[in-house]
Structures are given as structure tokens and as C-alpha cells.
């Protein structure tokens, strides 16, 4: 009888893969999972903008005015609007993960409500903050 081979196999060999993006029909829960990762990566890059703003404020008035001018420009506002949305979307996505960590909200329809809450909540909070920003200005 042949001896059972328990050695680790080469990962490059053809092993069956779990179904991935190309198989599933897009679903809201799936989209929220993907956007959680994308917003996380976007916020990662966005820290450069925060670092620029803080360093400019730490340097001198001229540097700060340059940074402030960029942030207030149309392209700057667009980036900051996206930054705000990414921040709130990712924040709510994180809260959703906490709900799951407590073993709740994984069944239908709770998971759909959580996905809808993440999507709508992120947009609503972003708009509210921007209304507040324009009023405070």
C-alpha cells in the first residue's frame, strides 16, 4: 500500500479555488465589503494630504496658505469631499464589523440592513459635515 504523502503541496499547482468576483452576481453586502477595503486604501493615501496640511501649519504662514489654497480649490474640495465620505463609510463599515464580531447581524435580512445603513449612513454623514463646514466658514 502506498504511503500517504502529507508533505505541503506547491501552491502554484492547480488547486480548486473558491468562487470569486467573476462568479457572483453583484450584491449590496459584497459591494460594501469591497468599498470598505477601497475606502481604507484611499484613506491610507489621504494621510499624505493630512500630513501636508499639518506640516504646512507647522512650517510658516506662506506654506500654510499654499496648502489652504489647494484644499479650497475645486479639485481640493473634491478630494476632501471624497476623503470625508471614505472616512465615514469606513467608520460605519468598522462598526458593522463590530456587530458581526459579537455574533449578530449575519443572517438575512439583518446583514442587508447593515449594508444599507453603511451605504446610506456614509453619504448622509458626509453631506451633514459639509453643510456644517459651509455654515461654519
Amino acid at each position: 500500500m502506498a504511503e500517504l504523502d502529507t508533505r505541503p503541496v506547491n501552491p502554484a499547482l492547480n488547486r480548486p479555488l473558491s468562487p470569486h468576483l467573476g462568479i457572483y452576481r453583484p450584491m449590496l453586502t459584497m459591494m460594501m465589503s469591497i468599498t470598505h477595503r477601497i475606502t481604507g486604501a484611499a484613506l491610507y493615501a489621504g494621510t499624505l494630504l493630512l500630513a501636508w496640511w499639518l506640516l504646512a501649519a507647522a512650517t510658516d504662514a506662506k506654506s500654510f496658505e499654499t496648502a489652504a489654497w489647494f484644499m479650497a480649490s475645486p479639485i481640493g474640495r473634491l478630494i476632501l469631499f471624497g476623503f470625508t465620505w471614505a472616512l465615514f463609510h469606513h467608520l460605519l463599515g468598522g462598526l458593522r464589523h463590530f456587530v458581526w464580531d459579537m455574533g449578530r447581524g449575519m443572517d438575512h435580512p439583518e446583514r442587508e440592513y447593515l449594508a444599507q445603513g453603511t451605504m446610506i449612513g456614509g453619504i448622509v454623514l458626509t453631506i451633514l459635515v459639509w453643510i456644517a463646514a459651509y455654515m461654519a466658514r
Partner: peptide, 26 residues
């Protein structure tokens, strides 16, 4: 994550108070 929930809200609040403010105020 747990730490960042209140900290992010506080960060947003701080930045909101600084919108349009000059160098010295910031």
C-alpha cells in the same frame, strides 16, 4: 478600530472648527 471611533469623530470636529480659518487661528 474601537479607539478610532471616538477619535475620528473628534478629529472631524476639530477640522470643522478650522475650515476657512487663518494660519494663526489654526
Amino acid at each position: 478600530s474601537a479607539a478610532l471611533v471616538p477619535l475620528t469623530l473628534a478629529f472631524v470636529w476639530i477640522v470643522l472648527t478650522l475650515v476657512g480659518k487663518d494660519y494663526n487661528t489654526v
